[in-house]
Amino acid sequence: MYDFAKFREAVLTGDAAAAVSLTRQALDGGVEPVDLISQGISPAMNEVGRLFEEGEYFVPELLISARATKAVFEILRPLLAKKGVQSAGRIVLGTVQGDLHDIGKNLVAAMLEGGGFEVTDLGINVAPERFIAAARDTQAQIIGLSALLTTTMPAMKTAIDAFREAGIRGRVKVMIGGAPITRSYAESIGADGYGENAAVSVDLARQLIGA
């Protein structure tokens, strides 16, 4: 019987080396990749989110848990693809044009991957056309926009307007977040969802696509 608690602890404490080693052990022992996600990564990242919400975890703790998760997913992703396992949903994510900050976006990407979503991370300073192209290529159900600066917030509206003009708005939901963003701002620019922090991103994405 595989010790999922030990694996969850490695993710929770951000011990990437242990998480990778325990992943290999699990796979060698016949554990299914999908069970490692459902019984290991997802509950561990949910716990990370809870600890963050309760003020016990801070950004560095989130970052190292995310790093451990990412390392595990690098091993699991090809195995999941080979077995034809469906993800919880497909999301294209990026920091909007003109904004070079990535911390919030990276945290959201890690949380979503931990939640079983297939994330296409376009990085920083992403032009609307790149979001559109990636959403088409990956058949994304959600586009996530991040901004840290008040000066780059308007690029979110520009992007959403561009999605509408490109004719993809009807089939993708848009979720936004970032330090200066508020719920009222999200509503005012026509976003479908707003995440106050990375910890809520998985629930928000699930709500948006009805998963």
Binding site: V59, P60, E61, L63, I64, H101
Partner: peptide, 12 residues
């Protein structure tokens, strides 16, 4: 360093 990298490195 970059904020992500710096805040990660204070742990690693």
């Amino acid at each position: 360093m970059g904020t992500t990298e710096f805040l990660t490195a204070i742990k690693t």
